[in-house]
Write a protein that binds this DNA or RNA. Structure first.
Length: 213
DNA sequence: AAGTAACG
DNA sequence: CTAC
């Protein structure tokens, strides 16, 4: 960890060894990121995936990058093509990639090479119950998560499902990075409150970058 | 199963 | 919080 990591103008929270919340990291890029999300969603619409148990997820999802995370009755997996259209997911823009790489570096993970960017859209009440990101082929690379729009409560657990869960509010522009010993930490998002943000109205968007392959 | 119901 |  270097000194510039902890610049005085930046809120930062060490969640655990290997896990860091970088406050306001993506603020400058946020309007361009939101415009890019609209372009991605025009090609690969945000949709409510089904869990293997047949339940509709409350969060709407799409992807860009070489691999996209999908779920249906047959399971969770990464796919090179959008199951809705059969087309490859759109390319990950340098704007997205550079942001993720800079955040990973700032959190102590140099050389991050994401090939997957999952885009999540939360409406009021949408949530993600506690889970692990473990569908990637290797867990040597960190997870980088970018928050935009309405603030949400991040649920940060431990290495076992039953471990104590801490809550941290994630604001517009916040980035969370977890890797190394924290790579498989259980995490989730509490139901999104009814709220409004100048750039997104009632919605929260989240970008999750991973190296899936 | 990244979700929900049931419970005390 | 536990069970499925």
């Amino acid at each position: 960890m270097t000194a510039d990591l902890f610049a005085a103008d930046r809120r930062h929270v060490a969640l655990d060894p290997g896990a860091l919340l970088l406050g306001g990291f993506a603020l400058d890029e946020a309007p361009r990121i939101l415009a890019a999300i609209a372009c991605i969603a025009a090609r690969a619409p945000l949709r409510h995936l089904e869990t293997p148990g047949g339940r509709r997820m409350s969060v709407a999802m799409t992807n860009c990058g070489e691999a996209g995370w999908v779920s249906d009755r047959s399971g969770y997996r990464y796919a090179a093509h959008d199951p809705l259209s059969g087309l490859p997911w759109g390319a990950m823009s340098p704007l997205f990639r550079d942001l993720a790489v800079r955040a990973a570096l700032a959190a102590g993970f140099p050389g991050f090479a994401p090939d997957a960017c999952l885009i999540n859209r939360y409406e009021p009440g949408a949530r993600l119950t506690l889970h692990q990101d473990k569908d990637e082929a290797f867990h040597t690379a960190p997870v980088v998560s970018v928050s935009l729009g309405v603030s949400a409560t991040f649920l940060w657990g431990g290495q076992a499902r039953g471990d104590k869960v801490r809550r941290h509010v994630l604001h517009h522009g916040d980035v969370v990075v977890w890797g190394g010993p924290a790579r498989l930490t259980f995490h989730g998002i509490a139901p999104l409150p009814v709220d409004a943000h100048p750039l997104t109205g009632p919605l929260r968007y989240n970008l999750t970058f991973r190296q899936a392959r």
